[in-house]
Structures are given as structure tokens and as C-alpha cells.
Design a protein around this nucleic acid. Structure first.
Lengths: 344, 344
DNA sequence: CTGTTAGCGCATTCAC
DNA sequence: GTGAATGCGCTAACAG
């Protein structure tokens, strides 16, 4: 049965003794084989085997000041949006020997600060944040500490350190322009209440030029919230022609609710999502959405951290990864021409 | 600009000097305030403030042999199935001062072993695995090390240490019994190729008593794979009445494809998923599925690790968390009676 | 290519 | 209630 007390393992000193070398030679044989003779390496390798040695990275980190960990802060791991980023980040870092320490801020800014303190106490070699760090105190602290920080999934002129993201206002503006090109007049927004979704809404409204019906629900949004949102939008605007949703999950709910109410999508209602989730292209109707390469964000964030720690110069501290609108069935053939006369 | 070299922080010795006490007193004031005088605590607290001290948990861990980290191994973070477990686990552990270190095995058993080695090198106070650890070498190693291990989302008579899960064979058998009660004869299975999905399929087939059409796709499954799977099932059995899917995402694909082909769901085809994803109850038709309390698994796993490390006796090393079939619209009103004559 | 010395920052153990 | 000494396991820095 597994005990509650700490477990005892062979140390590097044990390995060195068995191999008949000094501890530092054993250390080098394992960490830096290039500068040790092949015969010594082999002896150490065998000693590792017989002793069942497992290195203690905690001890190594203390001396070398490199913990080989990277902290990753997300609002909640269940937010589908960030999954490809976390996935790729984890893999890319693991390939370079880093482990990812996960923290959830829960969309609460106060917790963000406390969480950063806890994370920093473990001396991560870098911190990757989904979104920007909002607490000024936390920003200042991170800047002073000089830990490599990558903020992601957003854009800012003054990141704490490095940034990989895109402009949510531009996303909103692009969707507004797209809706306008289609000739839709009566449009609405179904959105989560998180920071980035709000930016997209603002961008949309600024480009659109006048107020439109908005249904706001708590983040993270899902299909059920989308269904409710459409109900509220239709109350405000029974002749609704198009809806911009802050996530594909929300869009799926809007479409489900529309079809359930006998509204054709497309035809009577057009729907645009955000995120290009794996189901977006394959649902019926196929969902028009804003595609963001979340995996690329994770890969670039990992590279930035690794480069920074290896002393390489960072050519570009801010990367705008962009986005594009993927037009699919959910926004086709809808518009004033095909729109039946508005309900009373 | 953030530097690539290690950052320098005030140490506990600095705090002690500023507070005019010895380092160990400063340590106690922060970690064990109960045995230090209030005046001293206040002086130390102020010294922490002025120095900007951030404790180094790495150093503390080395001495105390408690890293206050827990390793969590999942096939891939993007597998929606485990998200509630990881979410709850992270939060429950954080509340007790533990941080979660995330690792992805990628459904590759060889990587599982290497990943466990890497994780163990950081001396976690516990390891939580989504699923069972399959590599015998890794099992043996973990057992010998005596680290608290919680295997989850599966059942076994001989867990490495502790276990919180349920029987996938029983799930399959329960769905088979459910299908039989409904009187369906021509049933099929759409499934991912991962271990647990295979167990559910086996359980289904054993209870069903004879072979049925099966469409297997790569894990993790999604909507697109579900669409393809239905196509293949219909090739094998054009008069298909009901499909058991290894995930709700897969089921969503099967339903989408069915509706797209003009098959009514329910009415002509019944579909049962697995997992009770957030969208299952709200999609149209509402999805009948197997509900598993993933958050409860995470909460119990956290509790087990915390109890074990605090020396508490573990009353129950194996917890069968169970499951239940949630009947919704997707399996209603379908059956031989309403089934049109089979296609040629 | 290998070894010696020293110390990372903290908490345990023992003393007072 | 506080302090001094010691060492957790490893690696940087310097020597040879």
C-alpha cells in the first residue's frame, strides 16, 4: 500500500558511488553526455539502472535556477476555445523538457493575482496567459520579476512582455462589414460576458454604426445559452435577419432554437459563430464562423518561452496571428430578398 | 524588457534581516503563525511587503519533501470527456495549496511511461490518471515509489493504489438491455478506438449476445467522425434502428448525418450517446446518453490525494461512482412498429 | 575529460 | 516563543 510519507529514492550520489565516479560526473553523464567519455556514460547508465535512480528536478532547479516548468493560466480549462492552444503548448513544451503547470482564474480578476503569486512561488521559466493579465498589480509584479510572459488571444500595445494574439475589435468590425455586404439590416448579437467577447461586440457596434439588440449570457457560453439568447433577441427584434455569436457553441444553440421555432437557417435567419470549433464545418447547416488558429498560438507561445530562456533574441515580441471569416451554409441565401414580411 | 537569465528575488533571509529576526522565525511567521508572537508576525509581514518577497516553494519542497504539486495525466486535454474532472480536480487541489502539473499521453502507451518518469522527477505529492496506467513497467514503478496514485474513469480489481471510476462493460451492457427493452433488433455501434470505448463495446456485445455492425474511428471522436460512422453502419445494415455511440460528439454526428439523409431521429433511427455533454440535453432531438459525474470523480480524486498526504486513513481505495442512462428524445417513439420497410 | 568546493533557499532538529 | 546548526539533492564555477 502506498504510504503517506515521502518516498525514498536513490540519489545521484548513490549512482556515482555504484559507477565509481564523482557525483558531478554522474550529473554530467546524464545531463550533458557530450562532454563525458563514452565508457563513463555507459557505467553511469548501468548504475542508474541498478539503483533505480530517478532524478530530483526540484533539487536541480534550486541550483540551476531553471525549474523547467511553465505556468499556464486559463479562465477555466472547460472553455473549448483555448483547448487547441493548451494542447499544442503542452506538447511543444514537453518536447523541450518543460512541464506545464495549470491554473484556473475562473474569470475572477482577484483570483488572477493570487494565482500568479502561487505560480511564481514555483519559479516557472515562463508564464503563458489565455488573454491579457488584467490586474495592474499583477502586471507590475510580473514585469519586475522579469519572468518571460506570453499573453495570448488578445492584442495590446503594451503587453507585459510578449504577446501572440489578434484584435477582437477587428473581428467584430469584420463580421459587421460582412453582414452589411449581405444587405442585412436587422441584426443582433448573442454574446458571453467575458472581456474578449465584449471587445468583439464593441468592434461590431462601432463598425455597424448604431445600436442592435444584444443578448448577454454568462461565460463560458454553451448551446443552452444560445437557445435562450435567440429567444431574447427575437423579443427585441421579431424580424431578426442575422446573429453574430461570441462562440460556435452559442451559435449552435441559436440555430437549434431557430429551427425549433420553424425559422429556416439560412433563409430566414443567418448565423455567424466564433472559433471554428471542430463541429462547425460538419453540423447542419454548416456554420459560418471566425477562424483563429489556436494551435499556432500555443506553438508560438512555447517557442517564445524556449527562445527567451535559451538567450535567443526575440525578433518580434508582439505577433498578430490574425483571423479569417469562414463562410459556410449558415449565412447563405438569407437576406431581405428572401425574408418574409416581419411578424407584428 | 524581460531578461532570459534567472530573476533575483528577495529571499527569506532578506525578510528576516529587515524584520530583525532569524530566518527560521520569519519562516514560521509565514508558514505556522500560531506559534509566533503577534508582534513578530506583524514585523515579518511588513518586511515581506517592503522586500517584495515571494517564497521559493522549490527550496521548501527540497527540504520538506512535499512539492505541493499533483501530476495529472490525460490522453489529450482536448478530450471533452475529462474536462469536468480536470476542472474540479484543479480547483479542489488549489484550495488545498496544491498545483496541478499537466501531461498528455496522446493515447500512446510508450509515451505514458516516459511521461510518468518526467512527472515523478518533480516529486509530485500525487498522480491522477485519466484511465488506468497500462504499461506494466510504469505500474510497478509507481507502486514501488509509494506516491499516492488515483486512477480514474475506469474500474479494476487491482489499481496501482486508489481508483475512482465505473465499469465500462456495465455501461455497454446497460445500453444493450435498454435497446432490447425497446424492442430494437437491428442495432449498431459507432465508437472511438480508445481502450474505454472498446470496453463499452465489448460490454454491449456480450449482453446483446450476437455480433452487430460496428464503425470504429480514431479517438478522440467528434461530430465529423460520427457522420462518417453512420454512413458505414448503414452500408452494413440499411435497416438500422438504433446506434450506440461512444461519445455525445459522435452521437451528434450520427444524428446530423441521419437527418441529412432524411432519416427521422427518433422515429426511424434511435441514438444513444455517452458522457452527457453540456449540449446533450439542449440539442434537437435532445440526446439520450449515459451520464457520468466527471466533476465528482475529480473532487474525490483530489480528496484522496489530500487525505493520503495528510496521513488520514483511506476508508475506501476503490470508488465505483456509477453511471445512469438519461432517456431523452433521441430514443423515443422509434422501433419496429414505426419503422418503414427496410431498404433493398 | 574529471574532480573539488561551495551553495541554491528553505525547513527540520535540537537547543535555549 | 525564538535561534543555531545542518542538510535536502543537485549543479555552477573553478581547477586540474
Amino acid at each position: 500500500m502506498n504510504a503517506s510519507r515521502p518516498f525514498k529514492t536513490a540519489t545521484l550520489a548513490d549512482v556515482a558511488r555504484v559507477a565509481g565516479v564523482s557525483p558531478i560526473t554522474a550529473s554530467r553523464a546524464l545531463a550533458n553526455p557530450g562532454i563525458v567519455s563514452p565508457r563513463t556514460i555507459e557505467r553511469v547508465r548501468q548504475a542508474v539502472e541498478t539503483t533505480g535512480y530517478i532524478p530530483n528536478l526540484l533539487a536541480g532547479s534550486l541550483k540551476s535556477n531553471r525549474s523547467m516548468t511553465v505556468a499556464c493560466l486559463v479562465p477555466a480549462i472547460s472553455v473549448a476555445q483555448f483547448l487547441p492552444t493548451v494542447h499544442t503548448l503542452t506538447d511543444a513544451l514537453a518536447a523541450a523538457g518543460y512541464q506545464l503547470v495549470l491554473g484556473q482564474t475562473g474569470y475572477v480578476h482577484a483570483r488572477e493575482e493570487a494565482l500568479i503569486d502561487t505560480m511564481v512561488a514555483r519559479r516557472p521559466d515562463g508564464i503563458v496567459v489565455a488573454g491579457l493579465v488584467h490586474s495592474p498589480a499583477a502586471r507590475q509584479k510580473l514585469r519586475r520579476l522579469g519572468i518571460p510572459v506570453v499573453e495570448t488571444w488578445d492584442l495590446s500595445d503594451e503587453p507585459i512582455d510578449m504577446l501572440v494574439g489578434f484584435s477582437h475589435q477587428e473581428v467584430g468590425a469584420a463580421v459587421a462589414a460582412f453582414f452589411r455586404r449581405r444587405g442585412w439590416q436587422r441584426v443582433g448579437i448573442a454574446t458571453g460576458d467575458d472581456h474578449r467577447a465584449s471587445l468583439r461586440r464593441q468592434g461590431f457596434l462601432a463598425a455597424w454604426g448604431r445600436e442592435v439588440p444584444v443578448a448577454v449570457g454568462p461565460a463560458p457560453s454553451n448551446l443552452a445559452l444560445g437557445r435562450r439568447a435567440l429567444g431574447r433577441l427575437l423579443q427585441q427584434e421579431p424580424a431578426l435577419e442575422a446573429v453574430f455569436c461570441s462562440s460556435d457553441q452559442l451559435a449552435q444553440g441559436v440555430i437549434t432554437e431557430a429551427l425549433d421555432r420553424g425559422l429556416q437557417v439560412p433563409g430566414q435567419l443567418a448565423v455567424c459563430g466564433f472559433g471554428d470549433a471542430d463541429f462547425a464545418a460538419h453540423m447542419r447547416p454548416a456554420l459560418t464562423t471566425v477562424q483563429v488558429d489556436g494551435a499556432a498560438i500555443g506553438a508560438r507561445a512555447a517557442q517564445l518561452i524556449i527562445d527567451r530562456r535559451s538567450g535567443a533574441a526575440i525578433a518580434q515580441a508582439i505577433t498578430d496571428i490574425g483571423f479569417r471569416i469562414v463562410e459556410r451554409t449558415s449565412t447563405m441565401d438569407a437576406g431581405p430578398a428572401t425574408r418574409p414580411s416581419p411578424a407584428p
